[in-house]
Write a protein that binds this DNA or RNA. Structure first.
Length: 642
RNA sequence: GCCCACGUAGCUCAGUCGGUAGAGCAUUUGCAUGGUAAGCAAAAGGUCACCAGUUCAAUUCUGGUCGUGGGCUCCA
């Protein structure tokens, strides 16, 4: 007999060979139904994997995240079996569970088309009906290699396993796959799934290797969960900034204007200008000095900085004129270095915080371009802070706090903070271990002292130094780098930056690179998706729409109000067209204008306005002054509506 | 850049098993004048992304180019 200790501390004895399913069934039949797999001494066991030793067992029930992974992993296998039946030459790469489902990478001479997914789904249902058990076996490396002798992908994976690691193989009817597990034990446990899309994916994620066909799918325990997930995917399409950007006339892309070269339409530019003014003011109050520098610069400038050597492939090609080489700038750091050096600096001058709204151009791979999210011409509020070493901590922290403030004002949420460090890869980072060690230790110490929790990522640093990246999760569930604070000991050296210290000697300043809220392009895509196009009042391109009931009777008063609002600094519009009231209201609603004001006899007679807030059905009549106060307070509150 | 799919009016889409196309909304013009999500009618609007090939004939079939989308790679 073996002793099984359950999670709640209770102990039970079983015959050796008992399975997690058996343990669950011995406790309650309801539990058996809910159990998908189990942790046995910390290792995930299949529902039907026998246990032969004394062990601690923690049953994994359907409501746990691990259960979703197990289910989706098993569904990936189920799909692979179906694919193998339909495409006998198919070989398989990897097929893991992912956050919202699973995928499997497939190599076959045939091209699997979107319309084939239905056929594969049908075959999967057939296999479910066959109630095929998923049986786990353990192999030695040599045995496993014999088993998969005609599958180059599996052989490569086996080769990379640690020596001595147990190689487990799952047999599911005629289908055999190398796999770590765990699984749901039998195909009959898989019920509610859908294959979603087909895409290309490089083998091992390496763009030099062949491309496999990847099928994405998702699998759930209940039909309700599956339907809810599919509805969520639909809902995401409604939030897509490309769709909203067109509907609300925010930006425009045109093939003749250039791929990835977005044009801002009046509505979009209005929002951008509000953001620019907001950031300018925020920085001004935080002691930043604003500058402006050209979009074009010499190639030499970027050779001095080292950018050209590291990023030439991401820059537009060099232009030649008068025997000199020019490039479109991919960033502004070098210009700011030159500005710093344009006069003699004293230790008393530092820190010097230079800021600029910078337009820059980067050559992004054509396949990477996406709406406003990934473009080739972008504008961002960039800053370089020149400090003495003793000022690093206070200035990094101040920049960090400014970022927190801006993200909060925009109504966005930080997902996590990342500390990007270098790794050993040669040539990727500039070569000065002493400086690197120091810079990395300064960043770590600062985060630790301030109790900021963060994830360390090796190899993600800039070539000139470590960086703190602030990651935001978008409404589309993408994690993106919103803001960054980077420490740089390299560029000051390359540009020979100095200041005169208290001792009268020359010293080298340190540069802090700071990106506040990504680029306007990317920020706009995030805000569109975040607010589903219904912008908070302070950002809304049109804040109120005035609708006179009858333009003859009420048009004059409406016009007076309109001018009054404009004078007060609001973005007002008036719709006095000879159209039905309902028609004009509908149009304002589809444009998601925050306030609609209908002006009729009542309003003219009593000097009031009747408004309807976007998203609400109710109408309210208030005095003109009360309305203006309401608007001002809401603009002031930014995203925090009272 | 790579794999797959897609590209029809300003927008959203239908259609042509090869005989140069249609709807709704938007636009323009009449008529209607109204209290919270589409009043009625008419007109105008398209080299069916572009370039080749096959064919008596191509928007439709084939090839290429460009663009867009889903992914992969990349993202200072």
């Amino acid at each position: 007999m073996i002793n099984i200790t359950l999670k709640d501390g209770s102990k039970k004895t079983f015959e050796p060979g008992i399975t997690p399913e058996g343990i669950a069934g011995s406790i309650a039949s309801g539990l058996k139904k809910k159990t998908v797999a189990a942790y046995v001494d910390g290792v995930v066991y299949d529902l039907n994997r026998p246990i032969y030793q004394h062990a601690e067992v923690d049953l994994i029930t359907k409501d746990q995240p691990t259960a979703f992974e197990v289910l989706n992993h098993s569904t990936a296998h189920l799909m692979a079996q179906a694919v193998k039946r339909l495409y006998p030459d198919a070989k398989f790469g990897v097929g893991p569970p992912i956050k919202e489902g699973f995928y499997y990478d497939i190599a076959t001479e045939s091209t699997i088309k979107e319309e084939d997914l239905e056929k594969i789904e049908a075959e999967m249902r057939r296999i479910i009906k066959e109630q095929i058990p998923m049986v786990r076996d353990e192999y030695s490396e040599a045995e496993a290699k014999r088993l998969f002798h005609d599958d180059p992908y599996k052989l490569e994976l086996i080769d990379e396993l640690e020596d001595g690691e147990i190689i487990s193989v799952y047999t599911q009817g005629e289908f055999v796959d190398l796999c770590r597990g765990g699984h749901v034990g039998n195909t009959k446990h898989i019920k509610h799934f859908k294959l979603l899309s087909i895409a290309g994916a490089y083998w091992r994620g390496d763009s030099d290797r062949e491309m496999l066909q990847r099928i994405y799918g998702t699998s759930w325990f209940t039909k309700e969960d599956l339907d809810a997930h599919l509805a969520k995917l639909e809902e995401r399409k409604e939030r897509d900034h490309r769709k909203l950007g067109k509907q609300l006339r925010i930006f425009h892309l045109d093939r003749d204007a250039g791929q990835g070269l977005a044009m801002w339409l009046p509505n979009g530019y209005t929002i951008r200008k509000v953001l620019e003014d907001y950031v300018y003011d925020l920085e001004r109050k935080a002691g930043y000095l604003h500058v402006s520098t050209p979009v074009l610069g010499t190639k030499k400038l970027y050779q001095i900085s080292g950018h050209f050597d590291h990023y030439e492939e991401h820059m537009f090609p060099v232009m030649e004129r008068d025997g000199e080489s020019f490039v479109l700038r991919p960033m502004s750091c070098p210009h700011h270095m030159i500005i710093y050096n344009s006069e003699l600096r004293s230790y008393r001058d530092l820190p010097i915080r230079l800021a600029e709204i910078v337009t820059m151009h980067r050559y992004e791979a054509s396949g990477a371009l996406t709406g406003l999210e990934r473009v080739r011409a972008m504008t961002l509020t960039d800053s370089h802070i020149f400090v003495r070493e003793d000022q690093i901590k206070q200035e990094v922290l101040a920049a960090y706090n400014l970022i927190l403030r801006a993200i909060d004002d925009l109504g966005l949420k930080i997902d996590y903070v990342e500390l990007a460090l270098r790794d050993e890869e040669k040539g990727k980072f500039h070569d000065d271990d002493e400086k690197w060690d120091y810079a990395e230790s300064v960043m770590k110490a600062l985060l630790d002292e301030e109790n900021i929790s963060y994830r360390e990522v090796k190899g993600e640093a800039a070539f000139y130094g470590p960086k703190i990246d602030i990651q935001v999760r978008t409404a589309m569930d993408h994690v993106i780098t919103m803001s960054t604070v980077q420490l740089d000991f390299l560029l000051p050296e390359r540009f020979d930056l100095t200041y005169i210290g208290q001792d009268g000697a020359k010293h080298r300043p340190v540069v802090i690179h700071r990106g506040l809220v990504s680029t306007w392009e990317r920020l706009m895509s995030i805000l569109l998706e975040q607010y589903k196009g219904a912008f908070p009042l302070w950002l809304a391109p049109i804040q109120m729409q005035l609708i006179p009931v009858n333009s003859e009777a009420h048009g004059e008063y409406a016009n007076i109000l309109h001018k009054y609002f404009i004078d007060k600094g609001f973005r007002s519009s008036i719709d006095a067209r000879e159209e039905k009231l309902g028609y004009r209201i509908r149009e304002g609603q589809t444009q998601k204008i925050p306030y609609q004001l209908v002006i009729g006899d009542n309003e003219v007679d009593t000097n009031t306005v009747t408004y309807r807030r976007y998203g609400e059905k109710a109408q309210k009549t208030v005095s003109l002054d009360a309305f203006v106060t309401l608007m001002q307070e809401e603009v002031e509150a930014k995203t925090k509506r009272h």
